[in-house]
Amino acid sequence: MEERKPLSEQEKVIEINGLYKSFGNYHVLRGVDLELYKRENLVVLGKSGTGKSVLIKIVVGLLTPDRGEVKVLNQHVDQITYKELLALRLKVGFSFQNSALYDSMTVRENLIFPLVRNQRKLTKSEITSAVEEMLDAVGLLHTINQMPSELSGGQRKRIGIARTLILRPEIMLYDEPTAGLDPITCLEINNLINEVQERFHTSSIIITHDLTCAKAVGNRVAMLLDGKFERQGTFEDVFNTSDDRVKPFYDYNFIQ
């Protein structure tokens, strides 16, 4: 597999400083610092329950931070009005861990939903071609008239990604895009993520447990440990350690 390197880009699209978040007495995030640079793929690793999903939900304003600074495209997410937040969300795509497809709508309607509500001037044929182009990009044009309940897990993931991409976001947040999928589908999704980066010039955060995926798509890797990013850098930087909290990740994925 070809090794991916950090980009030389220096423009930050996401900047998180000293972020804290707890639920009741359970302190999930304890001083998170993180940057996402323009056009890079940043992989976020971490044990289940360490708050990876919470982190990116804070980035899109679904959850509010207790303390700390979260800047997305130079806007403070927790200090802007709801209207400004909606405008910002247009530029940030979020693919859910469980896909979160609208289960009362067909695949076509799922993709049309965000499109017509944000670009009211589109004609019928422009909408149709945008939907078909996006479904083609994720290789699922043939499912266009199916209901989400008729799709497999991997197909649902890809439709979820397509629904997010149709708004042409500048930033993509993928929550465990390959979890629970077979190796071949994982490969397809990895390729899709890289293709998105190249074709739409997006900057992305990819949350995953899957180191093969991490290696295949990440320009940079960050590992969430005990509520902080203690290890960041290239794949080697992160895993070249004897830390007991890190080694099992590597061993499980790569040692026969």
């Binding site: 304003g61 909606l86 469980n98 609208y102 965000p114 629904r163 997010t164």
Partner: peptide, 12 residues
């Protein structure tokens, strides 16, 4: 099933 959140993040 986070469908309401999905609407939120797709700017609707």
């Amino acid at each position: 099933t986070e469908q309401i959140d999905a609407m939120e993040v797709s700017a609707t």
